[in-house]
Design a protein around this nucleic acid. Structure first.
Length: 234
DNA sequence: TCATTAAGTATGC
DNA sequence: GCATACTTAATGA
């Protein structure tokens, strides 16, 4: 296996305050792993043996409800840590992670997390910060689920994905990983049929353009109007 | 307003 | 050509 380059980590928040030799130490303890689209990375409830840094691709994090429904909690973009159960003081994973697109990730044994937190300046603080941000995001979508109409929730879900993974093209902002209508329904607590109808309507209205597993938002401002910012209510 | 049922078309390995 | 993704209409809570 080729030696990993320090440039992989420089500039990323958890490692921002570290010098080259420290980053070298961290990299030398990492294993790089590849996952095909759809592959499971870890499962809810299993022993958290490893934490990860996503180098390339997108990870979908989901929880399973009592009656077996999947709920997509969030997506992880390149450069982010995930599977950081130790930061939550847990020894099992709180959710299931799978590759939304083909992924490359660095993996470390959990025991090293405490080691890193103790030895490297800013590592713990930065990871707690991202955990806090994610909790805030999850809380936001939860209250949305309870208070907002389906159309607003789907509009916001598209905007969230575009914000995190959006890559600008001439046609508009494209969501950079494959998404099915089923996936979107799992993020918004609705059915794939409703999502399909909404996307069809929005396509006719010129707001989005979608083909299978692929969505481009051609008029983001109009989606914002449909979302929590300015929906039909109030 | 939205889920469900059901029955269809399109797409890609 | 089969499984998967997606569309659409009808019905009813």
């Amino acid at each position: 296996m080729p030696r990993l380059d320090e440039s992989l980590l420089t500039g990323l928040p958890p490692f921002a305050r570290l010098g080259r030799p420290e980053i070298r130490e961290i990299l030398d303890q990492a294993a790089s792993r590849r996952y095909d689209e759809g592959a499971a990375i870890f499962r809810e409830g299993h022993d958290a043996e490893t934490f990860f840094l996503l180098l390339d691709g997108y990870v979908r994090v989901a929880r399973t409800t009592a009656d077996g429904d999947q709920v997509v909690v969030l997506h992880i973009a390149p450069g982010q840590l995930f599977g950081i159960a130790p930061a939550l003081r847990r020894d099992t994973y709180p959710a299931t992670a799978s590759a939304a697109a083909e992924c490359i990730a660095l993996a470390w044994p959990v025991q090293l997390w405490h080691d890193f937190a103790a030895r490297y300046d800013g590592f713990a603080a930065e990871t707690y910060r991202t955990v806090g941000q994610r909790l805030g995001e999850i809380q936001g979508t939860l209250t949305q689920l309870a208070t907002q109409a389906v159309e607003q929730r789907v509009a916001d879900a598209l905007l969230r994905m575009a914000n995190q993974s959006g890559r600008k093209t001439d046609a508009g902002i494209e969501i950079a990983f494959p998404v099915t209508r089923q996936n979107i329904s799992e993020m918004t607590g609705t059915t794939l049929h409703t999502v399909s109808r909404l996307l069809s309507a929005w396509q006719k209205a010129g707001i989005v353009r979608s083909t299978r597993k692929h969505i481009v938002i051609t008029a983001p401002h109009r989606l914002v109007e449909l979302g929590s910012a300015g929906g039909p209510e109030s």
